[in-house]
Design a protein around this nucleic acid. Structure first.
Ligand code: MN
Ligand code: MN
Ligand code: ZN
Ligand code: ZN
Lengths: 143, 143
DNA sequence: AGCTATATTTAGAATAATTCTAAATACAAA
DNA sequence: TTTGTATTTAGAATTATTCTAAATATAGCT
């Protein structure tokens, strides 16, 4: 098992798929690498204001849109609640614990290939698969 | 295999979990039993105006909310698009064909118990599971 | 280094789906 | 019939997000 570099150490590239990683984009991305609790655009805006008092909410939205387009972030939606964002690019679902309101990533069990489980015609191309779960974790479960 | 009664024949109960099935609620429900293409509240509003010129959009929203609360309908969300509604109560996912824009139900393969495939603590209670897929169906596939 | 074209950020206005409000209507029970 | 409650209705309000247009930053030149 290789040791992952911590987000503060991790160097974020200066370019990504042809677009510049600006100060603002880097800060948005860095925050999402650090905070794995799936913040909303507004949450991110509030957090970043400490380090970048001049950043605007429109910029946070712009950065998130760009980073999602370039597939370094995922947008996560629970019903019609404000969108949340996630820097985990592994295939995973999202679990909302109704007791705590906290959202966490959910991996699939070993050897499960989720895309093979749907009754779809052969040669169907799956571009994107979103799985969201609402439920209640057992007590004292930090996962 | 038993013959299912057609929606126009099917009698819709006059009460459901303590609330009255009013004219408006019945029409909304009837439409969703007939049209399995997952219409939005606005789609439903436009369709129903022919049979019920006096119905309001607020009422369509109110009816949908009530019917979802009482679990005779499901609300279906693709990212941040307007919510869609579905009268299919079997456990199923939703597939959006990016070529046609059409949404269809997707069943799971035989013997797949989707809730068992997530890496969650034992005794986690799953209240609700939403699965949405975007992709492209092979040509000439009506499913 | 300055110059210039383009990309990005920003504040604030606009949009659009949904929810809310309060008055009118329908209905069930007495 | 009367009366209390549920429901519908039109229109206003809300809110997450997108759009607009002006200001700023940056990369690639000279
Ligand atoms: Mn749902
Ligand atoms: Mn998505
Ligand atoms: Zn995630
Ligand atoms: Zn469905």
């Amino acid at each position: 098992m290789s040791k992952a570099s911590s987000p503060s150490t991790l160097s974020i590239p200066n370019e990504i798929g042809g677009v510049r990683m600006t100060k603002q984009r880097k800060e948005v991305y860095r925050l999402l690498l650090e905070k794995k609790d799936h913040p909303t655009a507004h949450d991110i805006f509030i957090s970043l204001q400490e380090r970048m008092p001049s950043i605007s909410l429109a910029t946070v939205y712009n950065c998130l849109e760009t980073l999602v387009e370039h597939e370094v972030l995922q947008q996560v939606n629970f019903d019609r609640e404000p969108s949340r964002y996630c820097a985990n690019l592994k295939e995973h679902g999202h679990f909302l614990d109704e007791k705590t309101g906290k959202i966490q990533d959910v991996a699939f069990k070993k050897d499960v290939n989720i895309k093979d489980l749907f009754d779809l015609p052969e040669d169907t191309i799956i571009e994107n698969l979103d799985i969201t779960i609402r439920g209640i974790l057992p007590n004292n479960s930090t996962h």
